[in-house]
Computed example of a mutant assay.
Amino acid sequence: MMRKEDEIAVAREYFPRGLFQPEGTFRFSMDALLLARFVGAAKYRTAVDLGTGCGIVGLTMLLENEQLAVTGLELQPVLLDAAKQNAESLGVAERFSGTLVDVGNIRASGLAAESADLVVSNPPYRRQNQGRHAATQERTCALFETEGALEAFVQAASFLVKNKGAFSCIFPSERLEELVVVCSRNKLTPKRIKFIHSKADQNSTLVLLEARKNGNCGVVVEAPLVMYSGIGDNTALTDGALTFCPYLECNARGR
Rank of each mutant, 00 (worst) to 15 (best):
G55S: 05
R127C: 01
K162V: 07
K4Q: 10
Q67F: 03
R45H: 12
D239V: 05
L179F: 13
M2C: 00
R27Y: 13
E74H: 09
I8K: 11
G18K: 09
R192P: 01
A241R: 02
V220R: 14
L68W: 07
V181C: 05
G72K: 07
F153P: 00
G24I: 08
D6G: 03
E249P: 00
G18A: 14
D6P: 00
L118E: 07
V207Y: 02
V92N: 01
P77T: 03
V10D: 10
F153C: 00
A108Y: 03
T71L: 05
E147G: 09
T140N: 15
N214V: 09
A134I: 00
T205H: 12
V57M: 09
F167K: 03
T71W: 10
S29R: 14
V120D: 05
L79K: 11
G40R: 11
E74C: 09
G165F: 04
L100M: 12
S89N: 03
S115C: 09
Y14G: 00
Q202L: 13
S97P: 00
G254D: 15
A134G: 08
A36I: 11
M61I: 13
D239H: 04
C250K: 10
G232E: 05
I8M: 10
F244E: 10
P224K: 11
L248N: 07
L59R: 02
Y228C: 01
M2P: 11
T71C: 14
C250I: 14
A47P: 06
E177M: 02
G55L: 06
E7S: 14
K187T: 12
L62K: 09
R27E: 15
P172E: 02
N216W: 11
G51L: 10
C217R: 15
T205F: 05
R212Y: 01
S109D: 04
D6C: 00
T238Q: 09
T52A: 13
Y228K: 04
A223G: 05
C245M: 08
T46V: 03
M227T: 08
S198W: 02
A252Y: 03
E178S: 07
L63Q: 15
K164W: 02
F159D: 04
N122E: 15
I56K: 05
S158V: 08
L209C: 13
A166S: 03
A236P: 00
E5I: 12
V101K: 05
T243L: 14
